[in-house]
């Protein structure tokens, strides 16, 4: 990146005529200073319009009493000071209690889903580090859940989880006889398991992709040296592969965590607008609080709280992991 200045001063401007040099250089400088900003402008404007301005407005909205009566002209909504926040975190009242419950469900779901995705992805990548017959085909197959549009994949799972005509009950109850009677998967407590299954099915290929790329950066000599020292395959995995993946894992786990925690598509397609209590993820919960009850102020306050939590976790995570890395090296 340090050589970029030279690239920005085209040699063309080495004009042979001394008289023209002065003004030319000035336009050259305007060009050089202004051009990168001009190139960035469209991206910058769009990011402002769709991400940054709405975020600021979201924070402002969270301090307003913004119900359906004020949506057409939200500037006139009365200020609510911290009322929306108070309602959101009053865990003894129904709204706050439901939010806390949803938050805890989301935490449990995220930890399990990220853990399983990471575990399956890493295991598959490590097993497929070596070439063997059919490896390319297998890799393409494994990427299918990642490539499928979310709604198409999840709607298939909805069919599989149907009580009367679904595959899951047919296998578990009719064919294996593991359950006394067919279970309900999309309502009640089982919905958590259903959600977790779909989330892992859809999420692990990303971990697989990233870990596979990370494995390519491990020098072969390390393995050869270890083999000469008599280390077996399992030992090589434990002593070389897994430690070498640590920097990759640092990013991967964070990205998986953020995506899973914010996931809206999976629960929304799986359960519809109102998720069962056992699988009431926070994104759907806030969506429901905002669009079904038309209370945007409280919904915004909840969103801001969610963002603050994510920022806090990300910050702590980055500090802890980079400290761990420094201590390890």
């Amino acid at each position: 990146m340090t050589t970029t200045v030279e690239a920005g001063t085209p040699p063309v401007r080495k004009s042979p005529s001394g008289a023209a040099r002065g003004p030319r250089r000035r336009t050259g400088r305007i060009h050089r200073v202004g051009l990168p900003y001009l190139l960035l402008l469209p991206a910058l404007l769009l990011e402002l319009l769709v991400h940054l301005v709405p975020m600021v407005i979201g924070v402002v909205m969270s301090f307003k009493e913004l119900t359906q009566f004020y949506i057409r002209d939200w500037g006139t909504a009365p200020w609510a000071a911290l009322d929306n926040y108070k309602v959101s975190v009053d865990f003894d009242a129904p709204v706050g209690e439901a939010l806390l419950h949803s938050f805890l469900v989301t935490v449990a779901f995220t930890l399990l889903s990220v853990g399983l995705c990471w575990l399956i992805g890493t295991a598959a990548a490590v097993f497929m580090q070596d070439t063997f017959r059919g490896r390319g085909l297998l890799r393409a197959l494994f990427l299918v859940p990642y490539a499928l549009p979310v709604y198409a994949a999840v709607i298939t799972w909805v069919f599989m989880f149907q009580h009367d005509n679904g595959l899951v009950n047919h296998v578990l109850h009719d064919q294996l006889g593991l359950t006394d009677k067919p279970s309900f998967w999309l309502i009640g407590d089982n919905s958590f398991i259903a959600l977790l299954t779909v989330s892992v099915w859809k999420g692990w290929p990303f971990a697989f992709l990233i870990v596979m790329a990370g494995l390519q950066n491990i020098p072969r000599e390390l393995y050869e040296a270890a083999a000469l020292d008599g280390a077996g395959v399992w030992q090589q995995i434990r002593r070389i592969t897994l430690p070498s993946l640590r920097p990759v894992n640092q990013v991967l786990v964070l990205v998986l965590f953020l995506w899973t925690f914010n996931d809206f598509n999976t629960p929304y397609v799986l359960f519809g607008r109102t998720a069962p209590a056992a699988a009431d993820l926070i994104s759907v919960h806030i969506y429901q609080a905002s669009f079904v009850t038309w209370n945007f102020g409280t919904g915004s306050a909840m969103s801001v709280l969610l963002l603050l939590f994510l920022l806090l976790v990300t910050g702590v995570y980055l500090v802890l992991t980079s400290r761990g890395r420094r201590a390890a090296s």
Binding site: V50, P54, G58, M61, S283, Y287, G299, S303, L306, L310
Partner: peptide, 19 residues
Amino acid sequence: TQMFPGILFLLPLFLIYVN
């Protein structure tokens, strides 16, 4: 901006577009 929950700017964006 990748890490922000979509739900956070869905509501304001909805209002911005309407307005």
